[in-house]
Every structure is written in C-alpha cells, then in structure tokens.
Amino acid sequence: MQEQAFRFGRARHLVGIAGLPSSVAPEAVGVIVLNAGLVHRIGPFRLHVEMTRRLNVQGYPTLRFDLSTIGDSASSGESQTRKQQICADVTDAMRLLGEQAACKRFVLIGLCSGSQSAHMVACSEAKVAGAVFLDGYAYRTLGYRLRYYVPRLLDARRWLRVFSRRRKTHQGGSNEPAFTVAPLPQEVVRADFAGMLDRGIKLCLIYSGGISQYFNHARQFRECFGRVITHPDVSTSFLKEADHTYILTGDRNRLLDSIERWLSHNFSVSAGASS
C-alpha cells in the first residue's frame, strides 16, 4: 500500500491523502476522516495517519483530507453556509475515493467538530453507510449532575478547603477557545439519529473522559438520546481514562482497536490485506 496525495474537489481547492489497499473487495466501504477542529488532516498527534494506515492494512480504502479553509485546503470561492460547504466537500471526497477505489458506500469518522461535520453529512447523504462519532453531541443530564456533584458534596477535604479559604483560584487555562462542539438541541440530535438508523446507517459513538465537563458515564448515552441508542445498529463506548485528543499512545491504540473492531463487525472486507 502506498498513499497518494491529491488536490481535488469542485474548485480543486481540497487537499487529501488517499490510502489505497492493493486489492479492494467490491463491497468494501471507503473510510473518510474529517478534520478535528483546526488541526490539519493528520489529526491530533497524528491520530488520523495511524487510523487510516491501520484500516488500509485491513483492506479499507481511506481518505484523510482538509475541509475548505482548513489545513492545506483553500476556499471553493462559492457563497455557501459552512454546512453547505462541508456537505459539498464530503461529496467531493466521496467522489474522489469512489474513483480511486471503486467504493460506492462510505463511513465517516470525526472527532469533536469532525463528529459534528460527520453528523451533518450523515443526515442527508445517501452514500453514507456508517459514521463514527468521537466526542460528538452530548448533554448534561440529571445523571451527569448527580455523578458530578454528589461526590463533591460528600468530599470532606473539599469542604475543608472551601472553609479554610485555601481553595485555589482557577488557573486552568488561557483564554483560547476550549474543545467544544456547539450543540444542536437534544431533541434534534435524537431525531437525526432515528432518521439515520431508518436509512440503514450504522452508528458508533465513542466518547472520552476528556469531555468530563459534560459527559461522565457510559450510562449517559441512554440519558442523552433515549431508546434510539439501544437500536442494534448503534454501538457506544466510553473510554473514561482517555483524554479528548488521545495524547497517550496506549489510549490511541485502544481507540483504534475499537474502531477497527466496529468496522470489521459491520463492514467486513473479504479481500486480503494490503501492504
């Protein structure tokens, strides 16, 4: 397997790297990895490079690319909303990977804002067969608040710090933008998930301990999204020990193991591996 660099898209404004296994099974899905925030296509700590190369070895064609105006991609010059741009960019990406690897259906993978982009596209694009949402939409539920506040209320040492006024002032960060996904309303996301499942899309939600400011337990998937999350085509996991961007190599490997397992369970490739 050798990766190939492409400039592509309706205005030849996008830059991406395709990983094309030497033999691709006719039914193989193409895997497209979307930008996480403003990090260019290699992903945080090269997560997307490791991910796509591992999937190539399993026989999946992949494309990691930069959306319009992110990384090395330019603007398309069109007058579009960000949502329209993202949908059109992913359509361009699917066309490229379809031409290169003859795949007709695709799985989208996105972390944080990448998950938001994947969600947006999966809502309307017929060629999407599956989506992996990493630290996607989530909401502070009653369960979240109980799990968050009760241990603190029962923590004697914490009260001691408060009363002795030795509580540290918050020094936790600069004024830089934090990791956030501006949430759609909870009911909208629930309905979106239901619509995706009705269209046969398989969903994988993997959330990390790095978003503990709004998500802190595996149970919260059900609390946030209700019965839709128990659908057989939905897989969820909570990697409590990991941070948001998988900075430790062991956490990164566990994440990649999870994605690989989910893909092979739902979109197995009969063709042999590349390399």
Partner: peptide
C-alpha cells in the same frame, strides 16, 4: 482557484 492550483501536494 489559481492560487490553490499553484500549491501541489
């Protein structure tokens, strides 16, 4: 996009 076209990966 002429400028983008001049940047080849």
């Amino acid at each position: 996009n002429a400028r983008a076209e001049a940047e080849m990966p």
